[in-house]
Structure formats: C-alpha cells, structure tokens
Design a binder for these strands. Structure first.
Length: 806
RNA sequence: GCCGAAGUGGCGGAACUGGUAGACGCGCCGGACUCAAAAUCCGGUGCCUUCACGGGCGUGUGGGUUCGAGUCCCACCUUCGGCACCA
C-alpha cells in the first residue's frame, strides 16, 4: 500500500481545480437564486501571508465548500488592499517603486493562497492600486462630494510626524500612529473629510439590522460613536452681547455652575480676551497649548487662565468667571463647558487648584452627606439649593430644568457624539489621487467623470515632506479649470486606503466593468454579503467606514441595502510569544515551511483545530504533528477499507457515521465550531480503525472523507477517488439517515441524591416506571440507598434516573 | 472609571437547551515491533485515598436557587479587549 504523500496529492488536485476553473461562479442574474456570498477581509500585500492570516482564509474556505456542497452558488472572491504606507515606506527604504513591490508581494501571496488549496474564484481578483479599480474609488468620491458627504474644512487633526501625514481619528491608538507607533501631534489644518458624524445615529440605530455580529464588536462601535444625550445651554456675555452654548449631560447641576471654561482653540477666545488686562496671558496660553502634544496635554496637571470676562448662568442669573483651559476640547460638544466643581471630578480639581467657589446642588436622597465631588445621577440623588427644583430626583430635575430653560430660550435638549468626521486626505504618494481641481476663479472643481481615473503620476522622490509628494509633479499638477478653462492645479493629496476597502466587496460582484463601479444587477444578485469573516483589529475602523459608505450609497441610490455585512464572524487572532502575530512585531510564522513539511491539509486542519474560531489562540507547532498523524491514519484506514467489498451500511459504525453527519453539519453550518467538527470526524475514524472489517466500515469511512473535505480538501479528494468516486468538491453534502440515527439501547445514568452511582445499558423504549425499577435493582444503587426511604424520583427520558432519599 | 469577553487536567480545549465534567488532540508513562533508534501500533493518564473492590474531592473565590449547577442568580477576584480630560 502506498504511503500518504501530501506534496504529490496536493499538487495534483490543485492542478485539477485550476485547470477546470473549479471555483469560478459566474453571475447569473438577481433572479437566479441560491446565491451565497462568502467574503473575507482582503489582505494588505505587505510581505507574505503568516499563519494568523491563514486562519482567516481557511475558515472562509470551509464555509465556501460547505455551502457549495449544500446547493448554493457560492461567490468567494479575493483581492488586495494594495495602496498604502507600507509599500511606500518599503520603497523609500529599499528603493524601487511601490508598484513593483506590491506586484511582487501579490504574486507571492497569490502563490501561497493557491498552495493552501483555497477555493477562490480568481476571475474576480481585484487590487485597489490598479487604475481600473481606483477610477471607481475616485468616482465614488465625486458622488459623495455631490451629495455633500465629502467636504474640505479646517479642523483640529492628528498628525504623524514620522509618516508626515494626517491621520483619521480611528488610526490613532493610545495617542500613537496606528502604522508606525509614533506619538501623534495636534494640528489645525484644512483637510478633506467624509461627514460621517451626520450618520452617527444611523450607524447606531441600524445595528438593529445586523443579524449576527459579535457583541464585542457592537460594543466597540457603540463606544466609538459615543452618543451622549444631554442639553445645550446658553451662557450670556453681556459686555459682548453674545451667547455661548455649552453641552452638558448634567443640566440638573446648572445651579452649581460656578465658573465657565472655554477651549483654547475656541474661535471666541481672542474676542473674550480683547481689551482685558489678562489678554497677553490668555493669548500666550493659547499659543502654549497649540505647541503641546495630545499626550502632554492629557498627562499634565490641569491648568488654565482667567479671561477677565464674566458670563451669566442661565439658571440663576449669576455672573461667573470665564476661564480658558486645555482640559476642555474644541472637538467635543461646543468647545465650552459650564463647570460644576461640586459634581464633576475635573471641575473639582480645577476649582481646588484656583480656589474657585464650589457649590453643592446634588445630595444623596437618604439625607446622607456625600464627599465632593459627588457625581451620582440616579434616583438615589436629589437636587438641592436649586430654587423650585430642589427636592426632585436628579434625572427628573434634569428634565424639568431643561424644559424651564427652554421656555426662556436659554436651553434645549441636545445630543453629542464622540465620533469625529472621517479625515480622508493623506499627504502621501501611494494612494488614489483625490479627483478635484483647485481653480482661483471657481474654487474646488470636480474632475469631470469622463476624465477619470486621475492617474497617479510617476515621480522621482516619494519621501514624505509634510505635504504631498505629488506637489513636485508640476506637469501633472498644472491643468486648466474644467469650468472656466483658466489656469488651475490638481489636488495633490491622496485618499486614505480605508476608502478603497469601503466598497471592494461591491467590485467583486462585477470586477471588470468599465462602464460603472459595479453593475446594479450584479450587486443585487450577491449583496449584501451572506457571511463576512475577518480579524478583530477591524472592530471599528474598516467595519464602521464600510457601514457608513453603504448607507450613503443607499441614500444616493447606488445600492439597495443599508448594511453591507449583516452576518459577521470575527475570528480571534493568533498569538506568538504572548503577542498578536504581526509583521510589525516580527513574530510571524510563515505557512511555507509548514506546508513543505506537513502539507497544506495538515496546516488547515491544525489552524481550525487549535481552538474556538472566535478565540484568541497561541501558536504551538507541536499540535501539527498530531494533525499529520490523523491524516496518515485516515489514509491507511481508508485504503484498507477500500480493498474490501462495500458491504451494507449497518451496525454500530453506521449509527456512529450518521451521528457524525448531524454533529459536523451543525458545527460547521450553525456554530462555526470547526474544532469540534474535526474532533467528531477523528472519533469516527478512530472507531473504524479499531476494526476495518467491521460492518458499515465502508460507509463510515466514506462519510469521514466526505465530512473532512471542507477542511482538508486534497486528501479527501484523493481518497474519494480511491474509493471509486469522483469530484467530491461538487458532491452533495452527506445527509443523515433518520432510521440509522435511532438506537435500540442507551446508557441510563442512575444517580442517588444527584451523584452518579451506576450506568446501565437499557432498551430505548422502556417506559419510565421500568427505568426506575431497573435503577432500583442495581446493587451499586442499593448500597447507597441503604434501605432509606426514596422520597422523590426524577426521570429524564433517554438520559437518567435520580433517586432522592431522606 | 464606563462598556464588552473570558477563567475547566501538565498543555490546547470539549460539555450547544440545568442532567454522566475532562470529548478530540498535545505531552507524559507502560507495552509491541526493532540489533538499536525513528516512525507506527496497542494500553494507561484530573487530584487524594485503597493491595483491591471502592470511597472522597474537583470547573477562579464566597454565598444562593435546584432532586441535580462548569452552565442560572448575588457579591467578589483575576486576565484580555474597546473607550476615556468626551463635559
């Protein structure tokens, strides 16, 4: 008998699949039915794949095969998120063009993917750096511009001094650049934004449309959007005849507002300070703040300066001092606050430092004396010393005070969000050029759609300079204005790569169309995505951006749905040495050597078996040996069985095989529990191995081969052929035989006072009284009953009997 | 601090709906084969106790509900993840 040779088998079948284009699923129109879209987050082609990414695509592959064999027309595409800093930085470091680096990496990764045997429809491959792709990224940008969703505005932004570009809020992790880890700086700059804060409510409310997203992802998105309900109250500055709004979630404490704080960046600050003795000091403080990094600003003790002005508390008419302090952020609320030192920790710290008055207006309802700051806002807290509102529970007080101030035009209910607009422009080379032209006469003019794509020009030096490297491409920059024909310049910034990845799943539906970003019928056929699979790192970034993109596209009539990924599976990442496996940390394990040693099937099985699909797991190579052993056993057992006459589907093995079908179908199709599915097949194979001549062995082994196919398709295909069949990848998924699921006996567990005392093999159809009688007959049980009175008898059909004695 | 997830043998993990805790795999121990080793195969493997049959204990900690709790409830501890000067 020949031995299992994974290299030979895997190469053989990969050639067959490639030759037949076996996993291409053509478009058949929205009416064709049975469409199923399996989507995995597309890779960023830096270097090659590591086993952490293998986890992602192997899970997707199992589902692809499973649904194909269950009668679905499955689309399972692949592409590359190929613009971005990584390739550009590599080009700067090592020389060469980012395009060449990307091309080489894609070639390598594609080869790795084929070597893993993944059932990918390569006819749908896209790469976001190709002009045929980014033409439509640019086109979509123009539609967003038209719809008022893309806009240029000055705002406080985060700047990475190392990468020399601005970053979106989502790309700042713990105050550091997501890509390079450098501490980010604050800058006030005019940049391009997507106005996704206008969709904050939809992004929250339409979570209800998501059928199965992990709670931790929903929670992370809710945190990120950070919706707070409260009120906007107006504080009047009599001298200047202006009202300054503040946002507060604690309007119940307004009678305790003893001072007012405005952010240093607030546009009203110079006006407030003007003509005051403190003017120089104030403007100096504003300048000092601008020079501080976010980390400095947050880390230091609170400080601020008095402006010399007073504002009027809208609740009691008191004049309260107005301060400038950098603990108030311009980006949140209205950039100014009412300070209530008795009931806010930050205000309390500030008031203590500068000896400002502290007035208690909330107290425990039970009459106790709470230490300040007392921040409770619940039924256990009541409003005190607040005129007519005294004595009300805090929540009701808040409501009544807002209503009362509203009547006087001094306040209204308001909502504020933590979410900031999505900053999409980048001062870097390797991205899609933003397709607009700056004309001195006409302002910002969109590039006419029939002139797209705006091709990324070749330049000599892509090193970051604090402004886009494209600023040096004079010939490319200089154009005539499409509106007035006068001299004009192209926008030199490029787009954030998250723009590219916010719509790629639409392009897969119709990847080669040169008339439209994707034909509507093709989109309707496949979308929304039936099952999206990706890693935890995109809990907020990509998943929130793409949700926003689709909502806007739906509102402007480009797609017919609100949520792109109703069903999301977020797999846990693979750790190595206690840290997430990633190229930047250098702790990656490449699949290449593993495949060369054990074969792709062993690696695929192991990465599925290593733990629950959504859990974080530590990579341990020792387990691979075990998978390899299992495959060899499956090989040997199958070939032994194949030499014997088929025989009948009967006996214990037939029961076991049918139970395994039920288990694996449920584990894969409903639970994403690939680890227990594989364990179940192992049990079945172990059972056959005990006696390969047993009745039902043939049927059991065919079932095992068929069930393991989505996880280990090469060996399964080869064994299937040796069992005298063909084309397992197209063969119908096994269906359990109801009759064979029935058993004649079962193991009855007998408990005394809830403790297991005996196990009896009994006929399946015994009535309850008979089960109890058998239980009582057991000598082991009698020893524990010991003549005592049986007070209660519990019978769980087909499981157990519990005798309760005194 | 707020939000979310999770704590089970030497290790990864299983037990999905309150009903046999530890499936499956790794590791380890013993045996077969071998001149020997590797590979393979067979058997054993939660802890304590017993010559043995058996008995006791056991799912982060402490309580509770229940005939019965890894699973439900309350309080706490620990780890991981998200948010955080967000008013």
């Amino acid at each position: 008998m020949d031995t299992y040779d994974p290299q030979a088998i895997e190469t053989k079948w990969q050639k067959v699949w490639e030759g037949e284009n076996a996993f291409h699923t053509p478009n058949a129109g929205p009416e064709a039915g049975d469409a199923y879209y399996v989507l995995e987050m597309l890779p960023y082609p830096s270097g090659t794949l590591h086993v952490g990414q293998v986890r992602n695509y192997t899970q997707g592959d199992v589902l692809t095969h499973f649904h194909r064999r269950n009668g679905k027309r499955v689309m399972r595409p692949m592409g590359f998120d190929s613009f971005g800093l990584n390739a550009e930085n590599a080009a700067i470091r090592d020389g060469g063009h980012p395009r060449d680096i990307i091309r080489d990496n894609i070639t390598k990764i594609r080869a790795q993917m084929k070597r893993m045997g993944w059932a990918i429809d390569w006819e749908r491959e896209v790469a976001s750096h190709e002009p045929e792709y980014y033409r439509w990224t640019q086109w979509l940008f123009l539609q967003f511009l038209k719809a008022g969703q893309a806009a240029r505005k000055e705002a406080p932004v985060k700047w990475c001094p190392k990468d020399q570009t601005v970053l979106a809020n989502e790309q700042v992790i713990d105050g550091r650049c997501e890509r390079c880890g450098t501490e980010v700086e604050a800058k006030m700059l005019e940049q391009w934004f997507f106005r996704y804060t206008t969709y904050a409510d939809e992004l929250l409310d339409e979570m209800a449309l998501l059928e199965s997203w992990p709670e931790r992802v929903l929670a992370a998105q809710r945190n990120w959007i950070g919706r707070s309900e409260g009120a906007e109250l107006l504080f009047r500055v009599d001298d200047l005849d202006i009202d300054i709004p503040v946002f507060t979630t604690r309007a119940d404490t307004v009678f305790g507002a003893t001072f007012f704080v405005i952010a240093p960046e607030h546009p009203l600050v110079p006006r407030l300070a003007e003509g005051m003795p403190q003017q120089t000091e104030v403007l100096d403080y504003v300048r000092r703040t601008a020079a501080r990094s976010f980390a400095e600003r947050e880390g230091k003790e609170k400080d601020g300066v008095f402006t010399g002005r007073y504002g009027r508390n809208p609740a009691n008419g008191e004049l309260i001092p107005m301060w400038v302090a950098d603990y108030v952020l311009m980006e949140y609320g209205s950039g100014a606050i009412m300070a209530v030192p008795a009931h806010d920790e930050r205000d309390h710290e500030f008031a203590t430092k500068y000896d400002l008055p502290i007035r208690r207006v909330i107290a425990p309802a039970d009459g106790g004396e709470a230490e300040l700051p007392y921040v409770a806002k619940s039924e256990e807290a009541v409003v005190v010393d607040s005129g007519d509102f005294s004595g009300l529970p805090a929540p009701e007080g808040e409501q009544r005070i807002v209503a009362w101030l509203g009547e006087q035009g001094r306040g209204r209910p308001a909502v504020s969000y933590r979410l900031r607009d999505w900053l999409l422009s980048r001062q870097r080379y390797w991205g899609a050029p933003i397709p607009v032209i700056h004309c001195e006469e006409c302002g910002i003019v969109p590039v006419p759609e029939d002139e797209l794509p705006v091709l990324l020009p070749d330049i000599e030096d892509y090193a970051p300079k604090g402004k886009s490297p494209l600023e040096t491409a004079e010939d490319w920059l200089r154009v005539s204005c499409p509106q007035c024909g006068g001299a004009a310049r192209r926008e030199a910034d490029t787009m954030d790569t998250f723009v590219d990845s916010s719509w790629y799943f639409l392009r897969y539906c119709d990847p080669h169309d040169d008339q439209v970003f994707a034909d509507r019928a093709a989109i309707d056929e496949w979308c929304p995505v039936d099952q999206y699979i990706g890693g935890e790192e995109h809990k907020v970034m990509h998943l929130l951006y793409a949700r926003y993109f689709i909502k806007v596209m739906n509102d402007i009539g480009l797609v017919g749905f609100r949520e792109p990924f109703p069903r999301l599976f977020n797999h846990g990442w693979v750790d190595m040495g206690g840290a997430k496996m990633s190229k930047s940390k250098g702790n990656v394990v490449s699949p290449d050597e593993i495949v060369a040693t054990y074969g792709a099937d062993a690696l695929r099985l192991y990465i599925l078996f290593i733990g629950p699909a959504d859990a974080r797991v530590e990579w341990q190579e020792t387990g691979l040996e075990g998978m390899s052993r299992f495959l060899r056993r499956l090989w040997r057992v199958t070939l032994e069985v194949a030499e014997q006459p088929p025989g009948e589907a009967a006996g214990e093995l037939a029961h076991k095989a049918n139970e395994t079908i039920v288990k694996v179908t449920d584990d894969v199709g409903r639970r994403f529990a690939y680890n227990t599915a594989i364990a179940a097949v192992m049990e079945l194979v172990n059972e056959v191995a005990r006696d390969t001549a047993a009745p039902g062995a043939r049927m059991a082994v065919e079932t095992a081969v068929s069930l393991i196919q989505p996880a280990a398709p090469h060996i399964a295909e080869e064994l299937w052929e040796r069992l005298g069949h063909e084309r397992l990848w197209e063969h119908r998924w096994p269906q359990a035989d109801e009759a064979l699921l029935q058993r004649e006996t079962f193991e009855l567990v007998v408990q005394v006072n809830g403790k297991v005392r005996d196990r009896l093999e009994v006929p399946a159809d015994l009535p309850e009284e008979e089960l109890v009688a058998r239980a009582k007959e057991s000598p082991k049980v009698q020893a524990h009953v010991n003549g005592g009175e049986i007070r209660q008898t519990i019978v769980v059909p087909r499981k157990l009997v519990n005798l309760v004695i005194k």
